[in-house]
Amino acid sequence: MTESIRIAVASADDAFSAALCAYLKGSEGAHVVESCDVEVIAAAAVETLDAVFLDIRNPDAIVSLRRLSLISPTLVLGPGEPDAMIAAFDAGAGSYIDADAAFEEIAAAIRQLVQGHAVVPPPLLGALLRHVITRRRGEEAAREQLEALTKREREVFELASAGANNATIADRLFISPATARTHVQRVFQKLDLHSRAELIAFAIRCGIYPEETQ
């Protein structure tokens, strides 16, 4: 590595983590923060971290990935299986590398990630592209369904997707709770939804991430 890069390494496998950190520290210009503690890494990321390396062979690591990927580009190491890789990208991974990868490949992948280039195991590339296409089609279909809503229903939808109950919706839109309930039911019917959880998931598919409404 020729330029200085700050990397956090998180793996539940202590021996692996120590060996990788030793390798990366031996690379010119690499500054390594070794920790399994997401909070420690998050705090470091807020400062000057350029990338996080996260080993997701530990089942709880996907939760950490969701958090860390919001604050730093994250290279994920995991099984060489399409489902694991797709779950990682859906959780925000910037790159993915097979658990069998050599340290040299990991270091190269970190460098590419920092430069803004995603790394995907070549054998899994087709599966990931297919997943992205399927997801985009779902988003497009969801956005088309949204267009069937009236302006008022759209307002109700956005409030409900932010977690507002009928009383809050009524309050915000200056309508009665009964009218709010009717609008919510019509939104559910038009979008073929059966619960508020489905409604929130639908909103996310449409790219709507509203702030929580009390």
Binding site: H117, A118, V120, P122, P123, L125, G126, L128, L129, R130, V132, I133, R136, R137
Partner: peptide
């Protein structure tokens, strides 16, 4: 593998535009 991945996407249902959008998203 990149060329092969594009070939794998050639299912008669996926347009070059969709392929390009996915590649752009990823890379």
């Amino acid at each position: 593998r990149s060329a092969f991945a594009i070939w794998e996407l050639c299912d008669g249902e996926t347009s070059p535009e969709e392929m390009a959008a996915a590649v752009a998203d990823l890379t």
